[in-house]
Each structure stands twice: as structure tokens, then as C-alpha cells.
């Protein structure tokens, strides 16, 4: 299992760069991932999405459906893509430390 070191923290990740354990998440992880996800500066909007994804995951054990993410944050899918160019799955969920999306993706 590859692991990366960033600002004194160690992260176990898989080949797609998703965190292996949700508990390992910390604010440094977001800083580490944002470059590979094409994000220059983190805004409050980014944090709002990440925070909601984490709350939803802790409460329900799954990532929210895209329509729930849109409805709760108030961001249309287009805006979510503007915030996270790789999209809500590969971009936002990865930064939030959620497990990798599965199924026929």
C-alpha cells in the first residue's frame, strides 16, 4: 500500500489517490490533494461541500447522491464542477476522505 508524506503527516492511499481510512483525514489532506485535482485556492464553497460530504458519510455510511449534495449545499451540478473540476466523486469525495466510488463508473 503506497503512502505519502505531506507537511509532517502520513497518508495511506490507493493507486487512484483515495484515502484508505476515513479516520486519517485531516485539513492537510485537502491541501495535499487540491493540486492534483486542479484546484488553486480553497474557498468557503469548497469547504462547505467537503464538510457536508463528511457529515453525511458519518451519519449515513454512504456518500450522498448528487441531487442531495446539490439540494443541501444549494450548488447546481455545474457549480460543483466549477469548484471541483474532476466532479463530485473523483474530486470532492476524494478531498473529503470518503471511500472511492464503486459500481460501473
Amino acid at each position: 500500500m503506497p503512502s505519502v508524506e505531506f507537511q509532517g503527516k502520513n497518508f495511506d492511499i490507493d493507486e487512484d489517490g483515495f484515502l484508505q481510512r476515513f479516520e486519517d483525514w485531516c485539513p492537510e489532506w485537502v491541501d495535499y490533494v487540491k493540486d492534483s485535482e486542479g484546484i488553486k485556492d480553497l474557498t468557503d464553497e469548497h469547504n462547505k461541500v467537503i464538510e457536508f460530504l463528511q457529515d453525511y458519510y458519518k451519519k449515513n455510511g454512504i456518500a450522498p447522491m448528487v441531487r442531495i449534495l446539490s439540494k443541501v449545499t444549494g450548488y447546481k451540478l455545474k457549480h460543483i464542477y466549477e469548484l471541483f473540476p474532476s466532479g463530485p466523486g473523483k474530486g470532492a469525495c476524494k478531498m473529503a476522505g470518503l471511500p472511492k466510488p464503486t459500481g460501473c463508473v
Partner: peptide, 8 residues
């Protein structure tokens, strides 16, 4: 539990 969303 680390890799899967159990309810799914």
C-alpha cells in the same frame, strides 16, 4: 468499513 459504503 474503510473501503466500502456498507449500506450500498
Amino acid at each position: 468499513d474503510n473501503l466500502c459504503e456498507i449500506p450500498l
